[in-house]
Design a binder for these strands. Structure first.
Length: 251
DNA sequence: ATGTCACAGTCCCTGTGA
């Protein structure tokens, strides 16, 4: 099975790239973040024509998460079930694998209330995942807006005092890992610098100024059979790219 | 050099978010 996660930064603006991706990358399941639309605008029919069933959670022009699958899509769960105001998580079962598509709050800056919101959100995610039997196949993917370690940041000295690298954020990721989940991209590529996001500004992609913040946390049965995990840098090139590249796991 | 992109509404520019 091949699963990918991709922050598309607007399903509407990215549609030509999404269509190209689905017809050429041969993924069974795609976890999407930042669709930036309400459910009524989501292209369910166009995706079905490409062979993918889909489930979407979108409340406004911000955030928005989806799961696309060509191997079945059942038991869809929208949000945390807390009547939250932002559409940041959706889960479903695809071919016996429970999958989550998550869009973790950005945090903005360490002294911003949005940063506390980010930490609370990660804590809630951890609590929800704690009820899942770790002996079953589970893939929790998405834009975590956190680099697991300094190795996932092109220049840690440029991020001193910033979000995405702070110790409380990284501790929140470790708390998720302690449930028995593995950052599969790093697990299978322990020594390879690889990034999944480059700011549109400052020519960051051209300069190699990236962060690895798009992650796939996998439970033991997935890790045991995983053969590869990689980041598709080609998707960051060309006409109207997202600022994020898709991240894959094959198992 | 905050050097880009996307959204909605104030609607061909502006404020907001990333």
């Amino acid at each position: 099975m091949k699963i990918a996660t991709w922050n598309v930064n607007s399903m509407n603006a990215r549609w030509p790239r999404v269509e190209e991706f689905l017809t050429t990358r041969d993924v069974d399941v795609l976890l999407v973040q930042e669709t930036k639309q309400k459910d009524v605008k989501f292209p369910f029919e166009a995706l079905r024509e490409l062979g993918y069933e889909s489930a979407h959670f979108g409340l406004s022009q911000w955030n928005g998460v989806a799961i696309l699958s060509r191997v079945g899509l059942t038991d869809v769960q929208i949000g945390f079930g807390e009547d939250e105001e932002e559409a940041r998580v959706i889960a479903a079962t695809c071919n016996g694998v429970r999958v989550y598509s998550c869009y973790i709050p950005n945090g903005r800056s360490l002294d911003n209330p949005h940063y506390e919101y980010k930490l609370r959100w990660l804590s809630t995610l951890r609590d929800r995942l704690a009820s899942y039997d770790p002996s079953l196949p589970l893939v929790v993917g998405g834009d975590f807006n956190v680099t697991p370690t300094d190795f996932d940041c092109y220049d840690p000295s440029a991020f001193v005092g910033a979000t995405h690298v702070s110790e409380p954020e990284r501790e929140a990721l470790r708390a998720i890992e302690q449930l028995g989940l593995t950052d599969i991209t790093r697990h299978l590529n322990p020594d390879e610098p690889c990034y999944s996001w480059w700011d549109y500004r400052n020519g960051c992609f051209r300069r190699g100024w990236g962060l690895r913040i798009d992650l796939l946390y996998c439970s033991a049965p997935v890790v045991a059979t995983a053969t590869a995990s990689w980041i598709d840098r080609e998707a960051r090139k060309g006409e109207k790219p997202s600022d994020h590249a898709p991240v894959f796991v094959e198992f």
